[in-house]
Design a protein around this nucleic acid. Structure first.
Lengths: 247, 247
DNA sequence: CGGTCATTTGAAATCGTTCAAAAGGAGTGG
DNA sequence: CCACTCCTTTTGAACGATTTCAAATGACCG
């Protein structure tokens, strides 16, 4: 069940059978099934267990007092919602589902055990944190510098490449279980303008969006429009030096 | 010399004399003095030592191919530029100075030693990572949801509160060694609009900006305009449970 | 004292928002 | 299976926040 997490971590380092079993065990202690648009946790909550997305999409978001909402990250299968946040007193943001989701609730002691006793996992989890930070910086750049078309294109590139890394693409297609209103909250645009921007991308033949399915006929072309470079995702098994010695 | 780092970490947990000496030692191994607008490291570089800002201001930034620049974070005295990034192959962004800066270059082995053998420091460094992530999320929200006036106000609130946490404010004033063009790169606005926005804040009596000095006569009022809440900075010695047992 | 960089001002152009409403789709209960 | 409802997508038109362009003023450095 921790398949996607394992695939993700293997982008950074090979894992031994033992490593993988430890991850599977941690992820199977307790699971929770949520519908669309439910909170996994909410700003102000005290952190508890660590939530791993097994299936479905979620997002980090912040609300302003007057109701404006910013989606600050998409959480895809294999993503951890709150790794290590249990040292804080309160969550400073919320995480909610965008589609039906299955989460594994990993007890914090299990996380500590993984960190202390499985060096490859420990390093790989550090790597996931660094990548998350890099993604967040990229989103800041996206909102600050790119115009609407570039911004939407960039978001779609990122989602596609991240899904591909965990095996959730089929050819040039993937799921995109997100409404235009949610894309608006993620890009800082109005829903009206998101709609027009998507139409423009469609008109240029850069994306095909039907229902909840996204197709990108020419990823290079979309990346060019988006000024997208995947370097910040740090994918592709760079850690040869950390290969499992006992796979 | 690691005074500001120590003050920052003490926002999270008390430190023993031993802890502090270890930090001082790590920060004194090698220091580097940089002028204004020099790079501490650059996107694409291989990570090496860990850079700690001892004095002066720096920023994380990303450049797009066509020259647009986004400042993604301000790095203030006591901030670490690249904690744990040495597990990556390449830096995905650059860090450059905004004013003359003194950095301590901490060998990565020294960082590992601190993490492995000083549990309070280890946890506190952890906490700094979480706060950095939270700040980055907040910047995303700032760019995505707040209009120009709120956005500038928010940025100034954050900087002031962070500086206050390390003792770099005097009453309602602090340094702001940053040009309007740099504020523009940080807020995703044009320099012209930054200028007009600052004038508006001035006209409302919310800020006094003369030269490189910022004064905030009524922080609460500025926070209200900015929809600013300091919760995401996780300041204020919340970790009673982690108090040093041997201070 | 000249030169360079930073701030300020004005006016026109533009991108994106807002408001309002229609059209399309999916699920529900009768 | 239809009628109904709710939600999402789409369209049009006016408005407004922010950008761009261009130039003047001010501050600091050598």
């Amino acid at each position: 069940m921790a398949t996607y997490l394992i695939r993700k971590l293997e982008q950074f380092t090979a894992l031994s059978r033992d490593d993988k079993e430890a991850l599977e065990r941690a992820a199977s202690v307790r699971q929770r099934r949520l519908g669309s648009r439910e909170d996994i946790f909410h700003e102000g909550d005290a952190p508890g267990r660590v939530n791993l997305i097994l299936d479905g999409w979620a997002c980090r978001y912040k609300m302003l007092e007057d109701g404006r909402r910013q989606i600050a990250a998409f959480l895809l299968p294999g993503d951890l919602c709150d790794l290590r946040m249990f040292i804080l007193r309160q969550m400073d943001h919320s995480v909610g589902t965008l589609s039906p989701v299955t989460v594994a609730e990993i007890p914090k002691d299990a996380v500590i055990d993984l960190s202390d006793n499985y060096p490859r996992i420990s390093r790989a989890l550090w790597w996931t944190s660094l990548v998350e930070e890099a993604i967040q910086r990229e989103w800041t750049t996206n909102l600050g510098q790119r115009d609407a078309l570039e911004r939407m294109a960039h978001l779609l590139c990122e989602v596609f490449v991240r899904l591909r890394a965990v095996g959730l693409t089929a050819g040039s297609s993937c799921e995109l279980p997100v409404t235009q209103a949610e894309l608006a909250d993620a890009t800082g645009l109005s829903t009206v303008h998101v709609n027009r921007t998507i139409q423009e991308l469609r008109a240029r033949g850069l994306v095909i969006l039907r229902g909840k399915t996204l197709s990108i006929p020419d990823l290079d072309a979309l990346q060019d429009v988006a000024l997208f470079s995947a370097n910040y995702l740090h994918l592709g098994r760079v850690g040869r030096e950390y290969d499992a010695n006992d796979v």
